[in-house]
C-alpha cells in the first residue's frame, strides 16, 4: 500500500481553501504552513500564462528528509506516509535543507493570529488537541490521523470523506484525488494511467507520491 495524491491543475482555481483547511485541521500556528499555493507567470502579454500549483509534502518513496534526519524523527510508514515525530526532533533543520521541495516548516517562535489580542478559543482548543512543539520541524502528514481512524472504522481513504485528507475533501473544484497508488483499481491509479500526470522535479530522484495533471 502506498498512499498518493493526484492534483488536476486544470480544475484548480487557486482559491487557497486547501491551505486554509490544512491550517484549521491541524491547528497550525501562525507561520507554520504544511501546504502552499505557488503562483507564477510565464511569457509576456498577450501570450502570458498563469501557473497555479498547490504544493504539499510529496511523501517521496526515496525521501531525502528521512535519510537526512539524525534522530529518525522523520519516518516513513509502510503505507508511504512520511511523518515527523516531534518528540524525537532536535530542531537541526537538516531535513528542511535536504527537501528539494521546501515543504517543511520550522516552528521558530510563538506568534498570535491576532497580535496583542491573545489566543482565540479555537487556538486554545488546538493547543490541547493538536499541540505543536516550538523548536521542531513539521510537515504535511497526509492527515494520517483521519486515514488511520477511518480505516479502523472500515472506511476507505480517498472514497469516504471521514478517511480522506482534509485538503482533498475541502477542494471546491474537486481537483484533488487521494488513494492507494499500489492498487491498480483505485481511482487515483486509474486517473494516473488515463491522464499521465507528472510529479514536481522528477530529476531529484525522490519518486514523489503527489502527481500533477498539467493542462
Amino acid at each position: 500500500m502506498r498512499w498518493g495524491m493526484l492534483i488536476n491543475l486544470v480544475k484548480c482555481v487557486g482559491c487557497y481553501s486547501c491551505v486554509v483547511k490544512c491550517e484549521q485541521e491541524h491547528f497550525l500556528p501562525p507561520g507554520v504552513l504544511w501546504g502552499r499555493v505557488l503562483i507564477s507567470e510565464t511569457g509576456t502579454y498577450p501570450v502570458a500564462t498563469k501557473h497555479v500549483y498547490p504544493v504539499l509534502c510529496n511523501h517521496c518513496k526515496e525521501a531525502k528528509c528521512v535519510d537526512a534526519c539524525p534522530t529518525r524523527a522523520t519516518q516513513k510508514r509502510d503505507d508511504g506516509i512520511v511523518w515527523v515525530d516531534a518528540d524525537k526532533c532536535v530542531g537541526c533543520r537538516y531535513c528542511l535543507m535536504a527537501c528539494p521541495y521546501q515543504v517543511r516548516t520550522y516552528y521558530s517562535e510563538e506568534k498570535e493570529y491576532y497580535p496583542g489580542q491573545g489566543s482565540t478559543e479555537f487556538e486554545k482548543l488546538g493547543k490541547q488537541l493538536y499541540p505543536h512543539e516550538l523548536g521542531t520541524v513539521s510537515k504535511c502528514n497526509f492527515c494520517m490521523e483521519r486515514v488511520d481512524e477511518g480505516m479502523k472504522r472500515g472506511l476507505k481513504p480517498g472514497v469516504d470523506r471521514e478517511a480522506t485528507p482534509a485538503c482533498v475533501i475541502t477542494c471546491p473544484a474537486k481537483a484533488r484525488y487521494f488513494g492507494d497508488l499500489d492498487d491498480p483499481n483505485s481511482e487515483v491509479s486509474l486517473l494516473i494511467r488515463r491522464w499521465r500526470p507528472t510529479s514536481l522535479r522528477p530529476e531529484f530522484g525522490t519518486d514523489p507520491s503527489v502527481y500533477y495533471v498539467i493542462g
Binding site: L38, T49, Y53, Q102
Partner: peptide, 9 residues
Amino acid sequence: VYSPLIPSG
C-alpha cells in the same frame, strides 16, 4: 539557492 518548483519567468 533552490531551483523554482514551477514554471516561472
